[in-house]
């Protein structure tokens, strides 16, 4: 969607420059003041991984991490992201390697149509972040279900999503333990 549209003088719109970090990269992006963060990501930065499903914050397909927290980009103003850090599904893998969540989702059939998947992955990634920060992490299915409570999936019945997040979470815990037990670890 072009920013430069024919201007009706009666509807003159404001365009602002938003400075933000997206997936670790600093950007200055021009966006009309009434645009959402989702529109900025999809239309201005070409980051089409974040999806629009419900228009108004009901489904979670647009979930990104804003300063590390799962956030609905379809009801976040683009200007609200000024000076902040946004992570989208495009930034989840590192150096071409899929994130453990992406690998587990793929292997375990946790995505069918895949449309909710980017948002689901971002909520899951936050769950893993929290888990990794916990002093003694415990993986519980009810915590996983609660963490995904704002992401609707219409294909899977969530079963394989729970399995995939659980498997990735177990990996996180194993890594945390290995780190703690290994040379130079706290032990």
């Amino acid at each position: 969607m072009p920013i430069a549209e024919p201007l009706d003088p009666a509807r003159a719109r404001r365009i602002a420059v938003v400075r933000l970090h997206v997936n670790g990269q600093a950007y200055a992006v021009a966006a009309p003041t009434h645009w959402t963060l989702l529109e900025l990501l999809r239309y201005q930065l070409g980051l089409v991984g974040s999806k629009q499903g419900c228009d108004k914050g009901d489904c979670g397909a647009c979930t990104v991490l804003l300063d590390g927290l799962p956030t609905l980009s379809c009801i976040t103003l683009a200007l609200s992201a000024e000076g902040r850090h946004v992570e989208t599904v495009e930034g989840l893998g590192v150096g071409g390697e899929p994130h453990p969540l992406q690998r587990q989702f793929a292997e375990r059939g946790a995505a069918q149509c895949g449309f909710c998947t980017p948002g689901m992955l971002m909520s899951s990634a936050h769950y893993l972040d929290e888990l990794g920060r916990a002093a003694s992490p415990v993986v519980r299915q009810q915590d996983i279900a609660a963490a995904l409570g704002g992401n609707l999936c219409r294909c899977t019945g969530y079963t394989k999503i729970f399995e995939a997040v659980q498997a990735a979470a177990d990996e996180t815990c194993d890594r945390a333990r290995a780190l703690a037990d290994g040379p130079g670890g706290a032990a």
């Binding site: 999809r42 980051l47 089409v48 991984g49 974040s50 999806k51 629009q52 989208t88 599904v89 495009e90 989840l92 893998g93 899929p98 992406q102 989702f105 793929a106 292997e107 375990r108 059939g109 995505a111 069918q112 149509c113 895949g114 449309f115 998947t117 980017p118 992955l121």
Partner: peptide
């Protein structure tokens, strides 16, 4: 898993609105 699974994981799948 699905043959095209990783594309669904990375935002690369390409839906019509993309």
């Amino acid at each position: 898993g699905k043959h095209d699974a990783l594309d669904l994981m990375t935002g690369a799948a390409g839906y019509t609105d993309d």
